[in-house]
Design a protein around this nucleic acid. Structure first.
Lengths: 344, 344
DNA sequence: ATGAAAGCGCTAACAA
DNA sequence: TTGTTAGCGCTTTCAT
């Protein structure tokens, strides 16, 4: 067991002072080449590595960023994390990842815990619970202390910081319009966790598209749920009691479940009923048939958030200079919708 | 912008010594109640939070664990991370998460970077590249330095440390046997990244089951690929040229893709061809039909690894006491296989 | 060219 | 009960 070596030990071993060692290792012009060489050789031989903690304590910079993720099993967040990881690594930062599991308490606890010199800034996505209780004190405190924060995906106007979001209304509007243009007339909607603003926006986009094209929204065609429990029953019931030729779902899992229900009923996709999902992930790609879906650029979102934060940390952007970046989406056509030749 | 306050400032403000403040905040019996109260009130008022870095530098313990993940988009790893996160949080540890994207260099770089006082130990899964090149120097070095490591899922015998793995041979054996017992006779196999030992083991389990039940393995029924590219074509070709009544896949994505191919060909699942996948995740659950699959307890794996590591860090287990834990799997029956009434 | 000393924020042994 | 001091590993003035 070969404990780590410190500059102090190097100094003693070579009978020079600690500061000489420090300077030599940092290639200071003050140190003679031979001394440098001697010290560096010794350091290499003994696998010297500077203690990051001591450095951070000194510089008041840790080169570490705290990442707050509500749910890592959500493919969107996993992709966003990857984007964050890529950008931070490129710029020489580490990340401390914390998963809140949508709990407000966990979010507050971990953020409090980290904002003590451990991290230089946060990239955070609000938990469902925080969004519901609207208690943002922890954010206010941390921002007040001068720690930069970038919020992504699930944000709130009462938190004054940089944000990176998806254009939910427009994306849902376009997806719905796409269905209408591919000759669907009776478009059902499935929405989960409507408490979330981002989902409300998607519903809004759907309704807006219908209205715009002169279709009266019909509440019987809208399934509103907290989560996926009973979704199959609800879809079956809707299909039993309504004529439907398309389903638009506010998230990916609902899209996959709708597909399962239609397949089980022997309904042809897209000939009888077309499906469009939101958030293009692994489920859309590997469903039978593969699902047409609104692709959200999670990876980009993560990268943009990370770069913005690091710019703030490094003073390339002033702390007070707040901005909200909107990441556009793109509809990915697969086999769950009819081919369409009208451009849009 | 309300910078963080230090004990030094508190001391000055209240005209007491720094150590008095330190002791008071730590509820030392040496300090009088009134002084304590005065100091604590002041601290609370000014939102004092101890600087974690300074504490860590002092204790030589950071209460932080480095997590090495090859690919966060892999549902299995995401679940394992969740298990790790749960266990570490419960025991008061933070995690620094690093994604290697299967790159050896990234793995070496991040591990070197963190093993400088930043973390108390590692929970790591080897990248494909590391496994291929068999270069484990970074592990040897870190272990040599006295930093505890727990390897999970993808491990190697040349690395001498604690491990948490899946019982791959046995699981594949049982899955194959299950297919035979549900009256399948011609069982195809799909395997990706066969370079990985864990996948080799699964193939081995499959072959073992066939042999055991007197079936001669047939190479025409085995599709070996590096990744999913061309998998659909390969499956189609196999089905064109062979009679098959079951497909066993070494991973989840291949299972989903096989399902897509069968559905596209209008083949009934499981009546015409049954499917069993490996690693039970979101794809198995939401395929049409939902897939019978070998459930690996990723969450448990993560928890076990984390607890073992923390026990090591806290000296509850001696450093030299090395162990490999095997996490059992369980076949989850869904609709892609025929119902079976024989117990096994 | 090299070294002594102070300090980053905190704890702890020892003194008063 | 309170304070002084040294030290965790390192950088950085300021002397020498």
């Amino acid at each position: 067991m070969n404990k780590r070596i410190t500059i102090k030990q190097i100094a003693k071993a070579l009978s020079v002072s600690i500061s000489t060692v420090s300077k030599a290792l940092n290639d200071s012009y003050e140190i003679s080449d031979e001394t440098k060489k001697k010290i560096k050789d010794y350091a290499k031989l003994h696998k010297y590595k500077p203690n990051t903690l001591a450095l951070s304590l000194q510089n008041k910079k840790t080169k570490t960023i705290g990442i707050i993720i509500p749910n890592i099993l959500n493919y969107y967040f996993a992709r966003a994390l990857r984007g964050i990881e890529k950008a931070t690594t490129e710029r020489g930062y580490n990340i401390i990842t914390c998963i809140t599991n949508e709990s407000h308490k966990k979010e507050v606890d971990t953020m409090e815990m980290l904002s003590n010199g451990t991290i230089d800034g946060f990239i955070a996505c609000l938990s469902v619970e925080t969004l519901k209780t609207k208690n943002f004190d922890h954010f206010h405190n941390i921002i007040e202390e001068g720690t930069p924060i970038v919020l992504y995906d699930r944000v709130h106007k009462n938190i004054h910081c940089d944000k990176v979001v998806t254009d939910n209304i427009k994306s849902a509007y376009k997806a719905t319009r796409f269905l209408m243009r591919s000759e669907c007339k009776i478009i059902a909607l499935i929405t989960t966790s409507e408490g979330l603003k981002i989902n409300k926006f998607r519903v809004k986009g759907y309704l807006k598209a219908l209205t715009k094209y002169g279709i009266e929204p019909n509440e019987n065609l809208i399934i509103r749920l907290e989560d996926e429990t009973n979704l199959k029953e609800r879809i079956n019931h809707m299909l039993d009691t309504n004529n439907v030729d398309a389903i638009f779902t506010i998230d990916e899992i609902s899209g996959a479940i709708a597909t399962q229900v239609l397949n089980a009923r022997g309904i042809q996709i897209p000939e009888d009923i077309a499906i469009v999902g939101f958030t293009n992930g692994i489920l859309s790609r590997y469903s039978s048939p593969p699902l047409t879906s609104v692709n959200r650029f999670a990876h980009t979102t993560g990268e943009v958030a990370a770069n913005r934060l690091i710019d703030k940390i490094e003073g390339k952007i002033e702390f007070e200079n707040i901005k909200t970046e909107i990441i556009k989406t793109k509809l990915v056509e697969r086999d769950s919708t009819k081919k369409m030749f009208v451009k849009f």
